[in-house]
């Protein structure tokens, strides 16, 4: 296990190193240097700034410094917001995004698990079909379409919510629901398949032969075994949420990281784009690593006995 974790951590750093190098190359290649907005500066002033940011140094030196700064958590300085450093900006906006993401993932997985359980236990009934339809819609329809629809129905037409401004927790309800559609669908489908598979195993038959009733079979025996593999989809789920949050935050004007990221794309603020990209990468890579390690710890027990088929 320790060997596996070490190996994974090494790969994680190689991946991050690649991404960081790529962002550095992009920073150098892309039009719009940190001074693009400062063309009116005199040559002396420009020299001062070049000196200050070390832009006169040879590229390899800049590269090493850039990587060193990243390692320290210093993502550089925003062009757009006068001299605000990117890390501080991200941390300031983090709160809103975390609220949305956490609400969406908790709400999404809980509802998804319930739907999946109902579908599996009432297989081939109207309940099953209903839950399957919800799952198909949730997987197929992008979260930004949901977001726009929710906004149109509940904010524009029904006027239950404010349009396009952050006004405390209430403003997080619609975007959280829009983001949760994906997790609901994925969890529901996953739990349904797992439950049906588990319900067909010999150990469930043996539990029945022991005289266990419906409730004991569903919850004491099957549920746990169906739930554990759900860990594997948490990684992709987090990635999906992140992707969704970029647009959903923009649609609902949530002052989170995603909204700022999209704004920076449209205003060519490369420092923020690259900084946020690095931040996202670290976030996703760490989540996937945790999920894999978690599953690796629980997995042998399942792989060795349950899933021999």
């Amino acid at each position: 296990m320790a060997k596996y974790i070490t190996k994974r951590v090494v790969y994680m750093f190689i991946s991050l190193f690649l991404i960081a190098s790529l962002t550095f190359v992009l920073m150098k290649l892309l039009p719009g240097s940190p001074l693009a907005s400062a063309e009116k500066l005199s040559i002396e002033q420009r020299e001062v700034i070049y000196e200050k940011y070390g832009l006169n140094d040879p590229i390899p030196v800049q590269y090493i410094r850039y990587m060193g700064n990243l390692a320290k958590g210093d993502f550089g300085i925003s062009f757009q917001y006068k001299n605000a450093d990117v890390m501080t900006l991200i941390l300031k906006k983090l709160e809103y995004s975390v609220i949305l993401g956490a609400q969406a993932i908790v709400f999404g997985t809980v509802i998804g698990i319930v739907l999946g359980m109902i579908a599996a236990l009432k297989q081939n009934t109207i309940w099953d079909y209903g839950s399957t339809i919800i799952a198909i819609l949730g997987i197929s329809i992008p979260s930004f379409v949901f977001a726009v629809l929710l906004q149109f129905i509940f904010a524009v037409e029904l006027e239950w919510f404010d349009v396009g401004l952050w006004n405390g927790w209430k403003s997080s309800i619609l975007p959280s629901i829009a983001l949760a559609m994906g997790p609901i669908a994925i969890a529901a489908r996953f739990i349904r398949t797992e439950m049906i598979e588990v319900l067909g195993t010999d150990y469930i038959l043996l539990a029945k032969a022991k005289g266990a009733n419906w409730f004991e079979i569903a919850f004491k025996h099957a549920f746990r075994n169906a739930l554990i593999p759900l860990i594997t989809v948490l990684g992709p789920l987090a990635a999906g949420l992140l992707t969704g949050s970029l647009v959903v935050e923009q649609i609902f004007a949530i002052p989170g990281i995603g909204e700022q990221f999209v704004k920076s794309i449209n205003s060519n603020d490369y420092a923020i784009i690259m900084g946020t990209t690095m931040f996202f990468s670290v976030f996703l890579i760490v989540i996937i690593l945790i999920v894999d390690i978690l599953y690796g710890i629980i997995d042998p027990r399942i792989r060795l006995s349950g899933g021999s088929k």
Partner: peptide, 27 residues
Amino acid sequence: EREMQKVRGKDISMIFQDPMTSLNPTM
């Protein structure tokens, strides 16, 4: 079915073919 549950495991019990799969792996 409720009466049957009282028979299963108490008056009549069963052993299955494959011991590798007939025990709950997480219990």
